[in-house]
Amino acid sequence: MKKALVIVFASLAMMASAASFAKGDATKGKELSATCAACHGADGNSTNPEWPKLAGQGEAYLAKQLRDYRSEARVDAVMSAQAMLIASDEDVDHLAAYFASQEATPGSADEASVEEGGLLYKGGKTSTKVTACAACHGPTGAGNDPAKFPKLSGQHVTYLIAQLKMFRSGERANDAGQMMRNIAEKMSDKDMKAVAEYISGLQD
């Protein structure tokens, strides 16, 4: 019960902070995006499955992740260095606005994992107390940008699994209220693979 209240209050706090989020200028963001394109693609649709698709991702979520890299709340050897090169917080907002405005390419799923992954995504796993992903990320994986819950649909399977494993190990720790860490620590590698396959095949 206590953990559930922490999640509720953390969600409310994120929604409140989103109200003051200043949207960037997508046109300016495009002008700043050349360096990002090397890994994430000119329109935010990366071809390397280890690097996330940014196209169509929530603007507030993208801005938060870039700021977290800049403050070292989230750490990655490549992204931390790249984020530090962004000249200002205003440019962070412009980049977030540009990639959020792009259309994401559809993902694909391993049909053998879809049924199990769908059950996990939509209903969780009562035996290990894994919360349903849809509770925060929506039934189609569209996310909830005011709360800074990311869009997941169509994302690369490899990237999704890597992030779940980093949440499980604590290597990634920029989730409010430890929400993702609390969920991922209860998931097996098999759970992660199944739900990632299901998510990649979703279309919002």
Rank of each mutant, 00 (worst) to 15 (best):
D191Y: 00
R181S: 12
D175N: 14
F167I: 00
K186H: 09
L164P: 03
N182D: 13
M179V: 14
Y159A: 10
S169C: 09
K186C: 04
D189I: 00
M187R: 09
M180D: 01
M187H: 05
I183R: 09
G154I: 00
A184K: 00
M192F: 03
M179P: 04
R168F: 07
E171R: 13
K186D: 00
A184Y: 03
G170D: 06
K186I: 02
L160H: 03
A162S: 14
E185H: 10
G177D: 02
M179H: 09
S188M: 06
G177N: 04
Q178N: 13
F167M: 01
Q163W: 11
D191W: 00
S169V: 08
K165I: 10
D191S: 04
A184R: 02
H156G: 01
E185C: 02
F167S: 02
A184L: 06
F167T: 00
A184Q: 01
K190G: 06
A176L: 08
G170T: 01
D191E: 09
R168S: 14
Q163I: 13
D175A: 15
A162H: 09
D175W: 10
Y159V: 10
V157S: 07
Y159G: 08
G170I: 06
R168H: 12
G154E: 05
K165R: 13
Y159C: 11
Q155M: 07
E171Q: 15
E185P: 00
M179W: 13
M192V: 07
D175T: 13
E171M: 13
M166P: 04
M180C: 04
R168V: 05
K190R: 06
M187E: 03
F167K: 04
Q178M: 12
M179R: 12
V157M: 04
L164R: 02
H156E: 06
M166K: 15
I161Q: 14
G170P: 02
M192R: 04
L164N: 06
M179F: 14
I161H: 01
I183S: 11
N174F: 10
G154P: 05
M179Q: 13
R168I: 11
G154W: 00
T158G: 02
E185Q: 12
Q155N: 12
M179T: 14
F167Y: 15
A176G: 01
L164A: 11
G170V: 08
M179S: 12
S188N: 02
Q163R: 11
S169E: 13
I161T: 13
Q155H: 08
K165N: 15
M187G: 07
T158V: 14
I183G: 08
Q163S: 07
L160N: 09
G154L: 00
D191N: 08
R172W: 04
M187Y: 08
L160K: 07
R172S: 10
E171S: 11
G170L: 05
S169I: 12
Y159S: 11
L164G: 03
N174I: 08
K165A: 11
M179L: 14
A184M: 01
Q178P: 02
A162D: 15
G177M: 00
M187C: 05
M166D: 15
D189F: 00
M180G: 08
M187K: 06
Q155Y: 00
E171K: 14
N174E: 05
K165P: 10
H156Y: 06
Q163D: 07
I183H: 01
N174S: 12
M187S: 04
N174Q: 10
D189C: 04
A176H: 07
L160W: 07
A184D: 02
K190F: 07
A184G: 04
L160G: 03
